[in-house]
Nucleic acid binder design. Structure first.
Lengths: 110, 110
DNA sequence: GAGCGTGGTTACCGATTGGATACCTTGGTA
DNA sequence: TACCAAGGTATCCAATCGGTAACCACGCTC
């Protein structure tokens, strides 16, 4: 889903309080996801970083963690209202990056 | 101009390829600025970081550095077209942060 | 009872970031 | 002559970031 060099890596903005936060948020766009479900689109993330990223997004009120009482372990993560509202400017950035993709590459090469 | 805790520091996004890039860009919004002029609004930046930030913004095509042939040394920095186009999504972020300032503080405290 | 999946944690390590401080060169000014 | 401003560099250090790898508890299934 996210390439090794995706538009956001060319931003002069590291999109992430940590490197992954932005991608994690975008992965939650479609509704609640489990820990292991997040590891699929975020193929290159280590468990450590995913936990770290989720914890800090939770602490700051962007993501809600829900642990179910199921006998088998089940935890989901979903966007809070705050988190969802942030998707809009985030998308603006991503769109910008896609629109200027070529210019960005040109500039970086020379 | 930029408080110690300004909206962007509460984003889950470090707004800056480095910490300062976003602020530097916004300082250039009003037209060309000299090195020393940038140090005023960016009160807490060290010369090293300002140089570093400017160099990387220049390398990546967001900022143009102009050295004048004046006998006295004179250098200005200004936004390129690419840099200017980035202001829009950047402002979207800043606006968002201001709108959600209280929520951000609340979330961070608890 | 052996192994598997879920949802992590821990330890370790190297690379990167960012801050403080001192210093430098060129030219102008008193 | 001494000093000042502009536009930086150089050096050092501490903290943070991010990756690898190993491990772990719980419940389930074979």
């Amino acid at each position: 889903m996210f390439e090794e060099i995706c538009p956001s890596t060319l931003l002069p903005f590291k999109v992430g309080g940590d490197k992954w936060a932005g991608m994690v948020l975008r992965c939650l766009e479609g509704g609640p996801r489990r820990y292991s479900e997040l590891r699929v689109p975020l193929a290159r993330i280590s468990p450590k970083m995913l936990t770290q990223s989720l914890r800090s997004l939770e602490r700051d009120g962007f993501v809600r963690r829900t642990e179910y009482a199921d006998p088998a372990r089940r935890v989901t993560y979903e966007l809070t209202g705050l988190g969802r509202s942030l998707l809009e400017p985030l998308r603006a950035f991503c769109d910008w990056a896609e629109d200027h993709w070529d210019e960005l590459l040109d500039a970086r090469e020379s």
